[in-house]
Design a protein around this nucleic acid. Structure first.
Lengths: 347, 347
DNA sequence: ATGAAAGCGCTAACAT
DNA sequence: ATGTTAGCGCTTTCAT
């Protein structure tokens, strides 16, 4: 069609070898600075490579070496500050050590999560770092990762029955701090938004809530403990329901910032004054929590540190060739961030 | 160490073949439902594969087929709603068509961007979709993508000199709408936050701003056109500078929501009333713009559609085997979203 | 210091 | 319907 169009075949080490009257093995060594290659050849190879725009085929080298220098990451959503900060933390350490990352979003969909795990195993990544989707109840799709002897690390939402390393916050403690603070602020009837209890984080956060109530001799009222999928929409609806109760709560603690946001917007739209009439707090320290009006009290989860811990754990496990290592559980202490939404004048 | 530990070598089609007294090629065909494989063998192969937990090695098959069924995506930041929505749009179409995506963040760093492009080319991805980093002035690192005959598609921030497909908003129009609206609202002296002008988006947005002023016979004052890197911090500082001018502006239009946010926070902290004293608008419709107080007028960029267009364009180009296709330029019409931050009572 | 040869796991062309 | 063979591009012994 277009005769002048570059019809370049992809350059391989064989091409380089031919041009320099030598062999692929020598070129391979030369390009990677192996000892025992004459300086002249090394330089010739490199400059020719540059000249011809040679790009090593990492698929081929990966196949040969059985190593891809890639870490697979599977998270529910990349557009949440918590997850994207964890990812940045992983990237920093990974790239310092010659690894790249492949990021996958499960969209909280178990099927998608399975597919991505399959893909990553098939792609022979060197390690997989995961935070479970909201709907993942069954963890059997992770067995193959172990079978393939690929280091597997969970953070935040983990498969508890699996004997692998995990990086977590002390979620119970996080909730406990938040609810204790609300009680101190004079709130007497604190509703709770929970997620599915088969996930550690939601079970633990709920326990923290219960513990704080108990600690202050406040009776638990199941009528104001709501389980849902913790989106902004369901948060809104849950708030509506709660506010229409004849014995309505004077505060809401949500195990997700997004649901807290929904609730906050409902309250605002309905002229319920925050924090005077109703207090509200969330979990995760998403960026928007500091921006809404009133600013939302929340629990910071050290997202970036979690990422660096994940990456370091991975490095240690590949180092050990995935043998003789003992799965490790790292637990961070979350930090309560008190903002306007709970600053009621103490009684 | 642990004698009972599964020492499973990774299963290959050769292993399956041996067990079924047949050959790798037959197994390969059987597993992929090729016509001309007996039903019995097909079923036997599949059930054995499941039993032994066989995972196809996509590295090997990729090497052989010269195809990875992977699309590489390079964006400045994944934690911006604009980019993560584009990515979701790409993913939807891609996964419907058997492709997976590999997401990379350049962090607005040209060096990182180069490295990721190298990595993706080396990984022999089937296509690359990019939005340039804020600091990328030189596009030479994309030449190798063309040399490798890998379909390359830009969106939003593009390399203009390259003859490849691009999906864009009409940025000039977006700015024009926003600034025209502000003028209608009675603002007379509208400051402007711009990014580097070697990037199409910032140049075009600025042109839209200039056009709107001109259209209303408002003289351009270079003193209130500020160039910076459009982060929240610099937005804050720029607002401070502007507000301290003796002839201070009565509005700010920012070509980034983040810088607009910084400005908004500065104004709030300094008790400048928005929109009465100073109006403010941003660009991109980030989620937080609807949440801040007052809610921020902004320009929506159809992020999700951009993603689907990118993916569809990619599919078309691979289909055509990267030959005989004419690079296409798709331009969407951005949508002005008017919120509190510019709703001044019209004079 | 360099080369020859084998092979990573899979697929496809070419038998039969 | 199945087998044989060759090869994708690279790396790594094992020679020399």
């Amino acid at each position: 069609m277009n005769g002048s169009h570059r019809m370049s075949k992809r350059i391989t080490i064989l091409d380089l070898a031919k041009r320099l009257n030598t062999t692929p093995s020598t070129i391979s060594r030369a390009l990677r600075d192996h000892p025992g290659v004459s300086k002249s050849l090394r330089e010739a190879a490199k400059s020719l490579a540059r000249e011809l725009n040679y790009q090593p085929n990492s698929v081929a080298s990966g196949l040969r070496k059985g190593k891809s220098y890639t870490i697979g990451i599977v998270v529910p959503h990349i557009n949440r500050d918590f997850f994207s900060n964890v990812i940045s933390g992983i990237e920093d350490i990974a790239s310092d050590n010659g690894y790249k990352v492949m990021i996958c979003q499960s969209h909280d969909n178990e099927e998608k999560e399975k597919q991505y795990i399959n893909t990553l195993v098939s792609a022979r990544v060197d390690g997989i770092i995961v935070s479970l989707g909201m709907n993942t109840e069954d963890c059997s799709h992770f067995e193959q990762v172990l079978n393939a002897r690929i280091p597997l690390i969970f953070f935040d939402r983990v498969c508890e029955q699996m004997d692998v390393s995990r990086i977590l916050n002390d979620d119970t403690e996080g909730s406990f701090k938040a609810v204790s603070h609300m009680i101190e602020m004079g709130y007497k009837r604190i509703a709770y938004f929970s997620g599915p209890e088969y996930l550690n984080v939601y079970r633990d956060r709920k326990n923290g809530y219960l513990k704080a109530l108990q600690n202050n001799s406040i009776e638990v009222d199941k009528a104001i403990i709501v389980h849902h999928d913790l989106t902004q929409e369901t948060g809104w609806k849950a708030a509506e329901k709660l506010m229409k109760m004849r014995n309505r709560p004077d505060a809401i603690f949500s195990s997700s910032d997004f649901a807290a946001l929904g609730a906050l917007l409902y309250l605002r739209e309905n002229n319920v004054r925050i924090p005077e009439e109703v207090g509200i707090a969330g979990f995760s320290n998403e960026k928007f929590t500091s921006l809404v009006n009133p600013a939302l009290t929340t629990v910071d989860q050290h997202s970036n540190e979690i990422g660096t811990f994940c990456a370091k754990q991975f490095l240690e496990e590949v180092e050990l060739n995935n043998e003789n290592y003992v799965p490790r559980k790292i637990i961070l202490n979350p930090r309560l961030i008190i903002r306007e939404s709970t600053k009621r004048i103490k009684e």
